[in-house]
């Protein structure tokens, strides 16, 4: 039996109502926080604290007013945070992906001296907790005068050992040696063979690694929290954390800040959700690699 005909066998419609109802409950659970944020970011401060209906809209829905307040508060610092996050995610994500694709391909397709040794070091590094590196990296960077600059956030996020591992597994399985040899026989150099023959075959894994490392940079909190002291360099995660600290510290005086935090959380999430949904065909293929073997 070949793969194409057996795929049809699984497509047979099956309806398990109890299972689907169970799944439905879980979906509600996973969506409740989003719903709460969507509803409550439409409220102003009195609506937020005085309204009794926390899971439904208040009488007046004021998204535009809130958005305007969000982006003008404190000289438009929120917009800056979003731009910073975007910069860190793109620079860190793209850089880490280029390095991981090259290294994964190198490990998979060249038997060079020291390959086995360096690969086992890499596998050991998968278990090094990333946060254990934050304090010593901070000390190193402060010696070099790099703390409180964008490089303090971008340089450490170039390191993605899991990306290398994923690319290695994928390149080994999805790029046949014969094709590479054929390209070489036809006179293509190593770099051209890599770019024009191997790279297109590795694309699903490349998208996965790119997305995972960009998300890791966007989500990063501990590293920028430690490295940056100038709030104009903060990514949105650290910025919202800062606002939350301020709002909790003086509960009565900063009620207006709470509605900004709620809307800020919602706005900061939108780019990632869009990226995941539009790219889902690509990353889903790549994700299966890491888990299988």
């Amino acid at each position: 039996m070949t793969g194409s005909s057996s795929a049809g066998a699984r497509r047979r419609p099956q309806r398990h109502l109890p299972l689907q109802i169970f799944l439905g409950f879980l979906v509600v659970y996973f969506l409740v926080p989003f719903w709460w944020v969507i509803v409550n970011s439409s409220k102003d401060a009195p609506g937020l604290f005085g309204g009794s209906n926390t899971l439904w809209f208040a009488d007046q829905v004021d998204y535009f007013g809130n958005i305007q307040r969000l982006f003008t508060y404190d000289g438009g610092i929120y917009g800056r945070w979003i731009l910073n996050s975007t910069l860190y995610a793109f620079a860190g994500g793209i850089g880490a992906t280029i390095l991981a694709v090259m290294a994964g391909y190198g490990f998979a397709k060249y038997r060079f001296a020291g390959r086995r040794f360096s690969f086992s070091i890499l596998l050991g590094a998968l278990m090094v907790p990333a946060t254990a590196l934050v304090i010593p990296t901070f000390m190193m960077f402060s010696g070099l005068g790099l703390t409180n600059t964008i490089w303090a956030v971008i340089l450490p996020s170039l390191l993605n050992p899991f990306g290398v591992y994923l690319m290695h597994v994928y390149a080994r399985d999805a790029v046949p040696d014969e094709i590479l040899d054929a390209a070489r026989v036809d006179g293509a150099g190593e770099l051209r063979t890599f770019l024009q023959v191997a790279f297109p075959l590795m694309r699903p894994a490349v998208v996965t690694v790119l997305l995972l490392s960009a998300v890791a940079s966007w989500n990063n909190y501990f590293l920028p929290l430690a490295m940056l002291s100038d709030n104009r360099l903060f990514p949105v995660t650290v910025g919202l954390g800062l606002w939350q600290g301020i709002a909790s510290a003086n509960n009565s005086g900063s009620t207006s800040l709470w509605s900004l935090i709620i809307l800020g959380a919602l706005v900061s999430v939108i780019p990632l959700v869009i990226a995941f949904f539009t790219l889902q065909r690509h990353w889903r293929g790549g994700l299966s690699v890491g888990g299988l073997r």
Binding site: V37, I262, V269
Partner: peptide, 14 residues
């Protein structure tokens, strides 16, 4: 797709 920090903020509200 939600940063862990934002997730914590959201549940903090709830």
């Amino acid at each position: 797709a939600i940063p862990t920090v934002i997730g914590a903020v959201m549940w903090g509200f709830l």
